[in-house]
């Protein structure tokens, strides 16, 4: 079963995830693929994590080799949930050749699989194929398609992210997904470039409410400063500041859309990630993580209500940071 040629994926880790109110063991895999065909998003640092070769056969072999590495290095049987990322779209045949894609799906067809794709690759033909490959060995959905909607505001998506698609594209893809019994996991992006702290919060709250009807899971990413991105260019020049953790919690606590919105504040408390003043960051990151997993609103709320010297600053920023005078802090 184990092949000779084994290539390590870009990354892989295990953890717990909350799906449909249950906490289950989860394996996350990031495959090195042909790379995102769009490849223009301003905050995306995965642009360089791709094979230079675009030859489908080469890509297929590489991806399957990575899959084998996973099988060889994890007891895959232990995990109920497999989350698959590439640096682009799992359903993009240029990036992930179809037979490689299918091989992966077959390998994990006894689990819940979540994979990420841009909506333009979600169509009946592909979904039909995918659905057929995934066995239905217990009740409930056994695969989810996650899509980076980022925001429901097309203007922001265009200017601040340069995502190249629309809310409507997402909705269409979501409808197709549902048609095939799969779930939709929606990724939203908190505080991309060019938004004031308040604009970012408002955009996120609105996006959660507006995307919920089309989503089964919602995960809010908080923009971080990744190497060699536009975001980093501006950040280095004092023209971008990642969101305050206060803002993240504000969004999580004060947006009721019926779906438990999860958030993994990557880089939380670091300069390049969502952060406060440094004194309160550790506790708040912890509270957010706890909330994502346990959905314990009260616990998060208690943290939101504790005081820190930076809370005044944050309140001031919300009221006074304007598009023509921002960011006010770093």
């Amino acid at each position: 079963m184990i092949l000779d040629h084994q290539e390590k994926p870009l990354a892989s880790w295990t953890g717990k995830d909350r799906i449909d109110g249950k906490i289950i063991d989860c394996l996350t895999i990031i495959f090195k693929t042909g790379g995102c065909s769009w490849n223009r998003c301003l905050m995306c640092g995965y642009k360089f994590e791709r094979h230079d070769h675009k030859d489908p056969l080469f890509l297929k072999n590489s991806i399957i080799s990575q899959l084998n590495w996973i099988s060889n290095n994890y007891e895959t049987g232990k995990f109920r949930l497999i989350k698959i990322f590439t640096s682009g779209s799992f359903l993009d045949p240029v990036e992930v050749p179809e037979d490689a894609r299918n091989e992966i799906l077959v390998r994990f067809s006894d689990k819940i699989v979540i994979f990420e794709t841009r909506p333009e690759y979600v169509n009946d033909k592909v979904l039909d194929e995918v659905a057929n490959l995934m066995k239905q060995n217990e009740p409930g959905r056994n695969f989810y398609i996650s899509m980076g909607l980022e925001t429901t505001n097309d203007k922001i998506r265009e200017k601040c992210i340069d995502k190249g698609n629309t809310f409507n594209d997402f909705r269409n893809a979501a409808e197709i997904t549902k048609k095939y019994g799969a779930g939709v996991k929606t990724y939203l992006m908190m505080k991309p470039l060019f938004l004031s702290e308040k604009e970012a919060i408002e955009d996120m709250k609105k996006s959660i409410l507006e995307s919920a009807p089309y989503s089964d899971l919602i995960s809010m990413n908080v923009c971080t400063v990744q190497s060699k991105t536009e975001v980093e260019y501006y950040w280095k020049r004092g023209a971008y500041r990642p969101a305050y953790l206060w803002s993240v919690i504000d969004v999580l606590l004060n947006t009721d859309c019926g779906i438990h919105v999860t958030c993994d504040p990557v880089g939380g408390g670091k300069k390049r990630g969502p952060h406060n003043c440094g004194a309160c960051d550790y506790d708040l990151v912890d509270a957010i993580n706890n909330y994502s997993l346990n959905a314990d609103r009260e616990y998060l709320k208690a943290h939101f209500e504790t005081d820190c010297k930076c809370k005044n600053e944050w309140k001031f920023i919300l009221e006074n940071e304007r598009p023509y005078g921002m960011p006010l802090t770093s």
């Binding site: 922001i156 200017k159 501006y234 023209a239 598009p323």
Partner: peptide
């Protein structure tokens, strides 16, 4: 300023960093 020049309060989503280039300025 925002009291004296109320239009400053209605410039939502208009941020253009100083370090933005001409192409970006031209578009936004």
């Amino acid at each position: 300023t925002i009291e004296t020049f109320p239009s400053l309060g209605t410039m939502a989503y208009s941020n253009i960093p100083l370090y933005a280039d001409g192409e970006f300025c031209g578009r936004f």
